[in-house]
Nucleic acid binder design. Structure first.
Length: 540
RNA sequence: GGGCCCGUAGCUCAGUGGUAGAGCAUCUGACUUUUAAUCAGAGGGUCACUGGUUCGAUCCCAGUCGGGCUCACCA
C-alpha cells in the first residue's frame, strides 16, 4: 500500500522510539543502496518461548512497520533458532531425563525428543513450540533453523571467509577471554565424525584453501575436517557475526545482557566483510520487588499468566512502553495496561494529525491499522471490582449487572468487553475467591438469616430489587441492628448488611442486597443462606 | 570498573521548550430507609542538586549526588 506523503513526512520526524530506530536503518540503506531490509531475532535452543520472546518479536515488528512508512523497500523478519547448539546439560522440565544422558554435547537436532511425538528431535520439537507460539500472535516472520542453514551450505562461503580471516577473528576474541580459555579457544566447533558431539577443542591447523580445520579427535588422533555443510559450527560470539554477515542482517535488537558483547559480534561481522547491523538494546524485566525476572527463579509473570487475565493488545502496549527502562512485570500492571490500551484506541480516530497518530501506541501495536474502538467506557479496573461485588463466576450475571447500569451494552455489540468480562471472572476465581473469609453465623445471626430465607421464600422469583430490599429491611429491623433515624422512626443499622456480606459473601462490603438477590435469584440466595447456616461456607 | 536506565504528589507512575498531571490513598460535602461500580470538591510537588543554552527549562546540554540493572572465560 502506498504511503501518503504527509504520513511519510510525519514518520521521518516522529519521536516515537520505533521511528527513531527505523531512521537509523533508513540512513543505512540510503548509504548502501541495498534493495531490501532484513530484521532478525534470535533464540537460544534451551529456553521455551517466554514473555521476553514475545517482547522481542513484537518490538522488532514495531520497528519494521515504522520503517515501512519511511521507505518502499521490501522487508523481512527472520526468527533464527540456534538449534545446532550442543546440549550442555539436560533441561529440568523434561520427562525421563536419564534417557537423554547419552546425547549430551550433541546438537539439539540430534537429540531424541524427550516429549515423544512426531518430531524428529528435541530441537525440532523446540522449534515447533517456538513457531506455534509466534503463530498464535500472528507475527509475520520467516522461521530459520541453524541446523538447516549450516547443513544446506548456506553458510559455507562465509565459513571459508572465516577461515581466511582466522587470525583476525582470533585477535578479536582472545582479549575477551581469560588466560585459561585463551589456550584452548577456537571459533570453529567441529561436530565429531565419530560421536556426533560438538567439540570444544583447540585448532592445530586451519587451511582456508582446502576449507579444512585440523584438531585432536576424541581418540587423540588428529582429525582434519571440512568446515562446510554442517560439519562444523561456530562458537557463540563469532556465530552471531558470521550469521549477520552471511544473511545481510540489517537490524537485530537484544536484551541488555548482550550489550557488552555486541561490539564483538559486530567486529566479527565486519571482518567477514559486511557492515554490522543496527542494534537496539532493551531492558530486562523485574518482578514486584525489583528483582530480575528469570526462568530459573520463576518470579515475575509468565506470558500465559498475563494472557489468562488480559488480552494480547494490553501486553503489546506494555512492550511498546519504554523498552529501555527496567520495568516491573507483575500482576498489578495488567489492569492498567488494559485500560490504557482502550484509552489510546479510543483516542486514535479522533487524532487528526499524522504526527499524533504515529505517537499513539496503538499505531505500533497494530502495525498502522488499529481497529475501531468499541463504544462505552467500562474499564477493566471496574470489571475487576464488579466481580467482587457481584460475587459471581457467571458471565451472564456479570452482564446482568452491567446492563442494569448501561442497557446499551451487550456481548453481541461489545465483543471486546465480553472478553474482558471473561478475564475479570478468571481474576475473581484466582485472586478474589481464595481470599474470601466467610464468617460463621452465631445463634442470633443464624436466627435472623433463617427468618430472611423464610421471608424471601414468600416472594415470587423475579421480584423487583425494591421489593426484595423491603423484605431485607423488614427482617433486619430487630436487635441488635435497629437504629433511630432522623425522623425518629426505627431503621436498620449498617451492621445488618455487614453481617450479610461477611456471612454470605465473605466480604466486608457488597452490593445493594436487594439488587444482588434479584440478579442472583431468590432460590439461589436461599440455598446460599442454607449453606451458610450449615457452616459450609466458612469451611471452604 | 565499563555500559544502560531512572530520580515528578504519601504510593504507583504519565507528561510537555510556554500556568505541573492521572490512578490509588487522605480529607470535605451531597445523596440513598446510614450498604456505593454514586456525584461534587479539597489538600498535597523547589519536577534530586548545581551550572549552561534560551525571552522562557521539569523538558535540551554539562557536571554532582542518590538509586536500579547489566557485563567477568555460559550460550
Amino acid at each position: 500500500m502506498p504511503v501518503s506523503p504527509a504520513l511519510r513526512a510525519a514518520a521521518l520526524e516522529s519521536k516515537a522510539w520505533p521511528f527513531e530506530e527505523a531512521r537509523k536503518i533508513l540512513k543505512r540503506v540510503e548509504k548502501s543502496g541495498q534493495k531490501s531490509v532484513l530484521f532478525e531475532t534470535g533464540y537460544g535452543p534451551s529456553g521455551l518461548p517466554h514473555i521476553g520472546t514475545f517482547g522481542e518479536v513484537a518490538r522488532t515488528t514495531m520497528v519494521r512497520r515504522s520503517f515501512e512508512l519511511m521507505s518502499d523497500l521490501p522487508t523481512r523478519l527472520i526468527c533464527f533458532s540456534d538449534d545446532m547448539d550442543g546440549m550442555r546439560k539436560i533441561p529440568e522440565n523434561v520427562p525421563d531425563r536419564k534417557a537423554l544422558e547419552p546425547y549430551l554435547q550433541m546438537p539439539l537436532t540430534k537429540v531424541p525428543n524427550p516429549f515423544g511425538g512426531n518430531y524428529e528431535s528435541f530441537g525440532h520439537h523446540n522449534n515447533a513450540m517456538l513457531r506455534r507460539f509466534l503463530d498464535t500472535y500472528k507475527f509475520d516472520y520467516e522461521f530459520a533453523s541453524a541446523t538447516d542453514y549450516y547443513t544446506s551450505g548456506r553458510f559455507d562461503d562465509t565459513l571459508i571467509k572465516a577461515l581466511e580471516k582466522y587470525d583476525d577473528i582470533m585477535a578479536v576474541m582472545l582479549p575477551t577471554l581469560g588466560e585459561e580459555r585463551q589456550a584452548t579457544y577456537s571459533p570453529f566447533l567441529p561436530i565429531s565424525p565419530t560421536s556426533g558431539r560438538v567439540l570444544y577443542v583447540p585448532m592445530k591447523d586451519v587451511n582456508a584453501k582446502q576449507g579444512t580445520i585440523t584438531f585432536a579427535g576424541e581418540d587423540g588422533a588428529d582429525v582434519t575436517l571440512d568446515v562446510r555443510g554442517g560439519r562444523t559450527k561456530l562458537q557463540w560470539k563469532p556465530d552471531f557475526g558470521m550469521r549477520w554477515a552471511a544473511l545481510d542482517v540489517d537490524f537485530e535488537m537484544f536484551g541488555k545482557d548482550h550489550q557488552t558483547n555486541a561490539p564483538i559480534y559486530d567486529r566479527i561481522c565486519e571482518i567477514l566483510g559486511k557492515p554490522a547491523p543496527e542494534h537496539y538494546v532493551y531492558e530486562l524485566f523485574l518482578d514486584e520487588s525489583g528483582q530480575k525476572i528469570s526462568k530459573s527463579k520463576g518470579n515475575g509473570l509468565t506470558i500465559d499468566e498475563w494472557l489468562t487475565y488480559a488480552d494480547t493488545e494490553s501486553l503489546a502496549l506494555y512492550m511498546y512502553n519504554r523498552p529501555r527502562e527496567a520495568k516491573k512485570l507483575y500482576f498489578d500492571v495488567i489492569p492498567r495496561a488494559v485500560d490504557e490500551y482502550a484509552q489510546f484506541l479510543a483516542a486514535y480516530p479522533k487524532q487528526a494529525e499524522a504526527k499524533d497518530k504515529l505517537m499513539n501506541p496503538v499505531w505500533h501495536i497494530h502495525g498502522g491499522h488499529p481497529p475501531q474502538p468499541e463504544s462505552g467506557n467500562v474499564t477493566f479496573a471496574l470489571l475487576l471490582n464488579l466481580t467482587t461485588v457481584a460475587n459471581t463466576e457467571d458471565k451472564a450475571v456479570m452482564w446482568a449487572f452491567l446492563k442494569r447500569y448501561m442497557p446499551e451494552l451487550s456481548p453481541e455489540t461489545h465483543p471486546r468487553l465480553d472478553k474482558l468480562v471473561g478475564f475479570a471472572i478468571r481474576y475473581f476465581q484466582d485472586f478474589v475467591k481464595p481470599a474470601k473469609k466467610y464468617k460463621l453465623a452465631d445463634d442470633s445471626e443464624a436466627k435472623a438469616l433463617a427468618d430472611l430465607a423464610e421471608a424471601l421464600g414468600k416472594l415470587p422469583e423475579g421480584s423487583s430489587p425494591e421489593e426484595i430490599q423491603k423484605i431485607v429491611y423488614d427482617v433486619g429491623r430487630r436487635e441488635p441492628y435497629t437504629t433511630t433515624q432522623k425522623d425518629g422512626t426505627v431503621g436498620v443499622a449498617q451492621g445488618w448488611f455487614n453481617m450479610l456480606y461477611q456471612v454470605l459473601l465473605g466480604e466486608e462490603r457488597g452490593p445493594r442486597f436487594g439488587s444482588f438477590v434479584a440478579l442472583y435469584g431468590i432460590a439461589n440466595t436461599r440455598a446460599l443462606i442454607e449453606k451458610a447456616l450449615k457452616g459450609q461456607l466458612a469451611q471452604e
